[in-house]
């Protein structure tokens, strides 16, 4: 009864639910640095979903963009203006 594709489906459901929760929290946040950190965690959850679909080359490219380049670019942009956004 317990086979490999069933385990992959259960873990896929768990990691995509986690990604949805953090994507919602990243939109509603006022402090911009915390929003960038939530977005990085959402990228990690999506990369794990790509791993469970048996595609390791897409994991390498998505991690390099989602956690590496995107975070450094947005932190550089926030350092030029102010940190808290108003309503």
């Amino acid at each position: 009864m317990i086979e490999a594709t069933l385990i992959a489906e259960i873990l896929l459901a768990f990691s995509l639910t986690l990604a949805l929760i953090f994507a919602y929290l990243a939109i509603r946040e006022r402090d911009l640095i915390k929003a960038i950190v939530f977005s990085a965690l959402q990228s990690v959850a999506f990369a794990y979903a790509y791993y469970l679909l048996f595609a390791p080359d897409i994991v390498l490219a998505y991690i390099a963009v989602g956690v590496g380049i995107y975070s450094i670019l947005l932190i550089y942009g926030v350092s030029k203006t102010e940190r808290y956004e108003e309503v």
Binding site: V44, V59, I63, A64, V67
Partner: peptide, 16 residues
């Protein structure tokens, strides 16, 4: 070949 993705994940977390 699925083990190679774990190495990249560990290194980018340090950079953050």
């Amino acid at each position: 070949f699925l083990m190679v993705a774990a190495l990249a994940l560990a290194l980018w977390a340090y950079v953050l």
